[in-house]
Design a protein around this nucleic acid. Sequence first.
DNA 1: AAGCTGTCCTGAAAGC
DNA 2: TGCTTTCAGGACAGCT
Length: 271
Amino acid sequence: MPELPEVEVTRRSFADRIAGATVRAARLGKPLRWPLGVAPEALVGQRVRSVGRRGKYLLVEMDRGWLLVHLGMSGSLQFAPALPPPGPHDHFELDTSQGLLRLHDPRRFGAVVCVPSLDHARAVQLLGGLGVEPLEAGFDPVRFHQALRQRRAPIKQVLLAGDIVVGVGNIYASEALFSAGIRPTTRADRISGPRAARLHAAIVQVLQRALAVGGSTLRDFVSADGQSGYFQLDTMVYDRAGQPCRRCATAIRTIRQGQRSTYFCPLCQAR
DNA sequence: AAGCTGTCCTGAAAGC
DNA sequence: TGCTTTCAGGACAGCT
């Protein structure tokens, strides 16, 4: 499932190639998570200025607004001069002078939303509540600790909420907590400064490593077949229930937190 | 305000 | 073998 590293790799794979292109047509498939918000024809004639990213949203900057693209959990993008006819799971297409951008999303948790330049409220609604970017300078260990001290919920769920730091999904939350030696059920406000600093470093390291791996395994994520693109994850705890911890050989345990699976090592993550 | 729960969707895997 | 059930995931609405 696309988490921050996959989204960033996707962005890099087509941002330069689509920049400057003029939209010739836009097509919708079955409904996605949210409606597009405008008639597809409203995009025709606009040029693509750039492709940025905020959290797990891709921000396609157009002449008169932004296209916010979210890959949900099963979405992927392709951008190529030409593509085969759309299949039953291709739910958005942007035909441009430089190629065809296509969203393939079998489970339709993804979304493409057009936010006109003037609709500031809509932009705030979609992006306003997001936390800091974990791979940018604003993600600071001291401020991270201060933010955690305001929260009584289990640290795993606080990370997932995304309002302190974005981009840490279910997989990387478990992985980062293992790396920092913190039990996922620990109340966020009970984590000391030094331990928060360790978690901060673990989040950065886990995401950066995934991004580096993605750079090699996902080089043609967008332009190629779209099937083999997902990360081949080599995890320490995620999806390893009952298997021996790679550090101490204790059996990895799984629990449910907020209807989501959490994995941890009971020995390496004692508290 | 913060923190719960339910909801959306569909393919894969497990269970009967 | 074939049918039914469960599970996975991100993020929001609507509660308490």
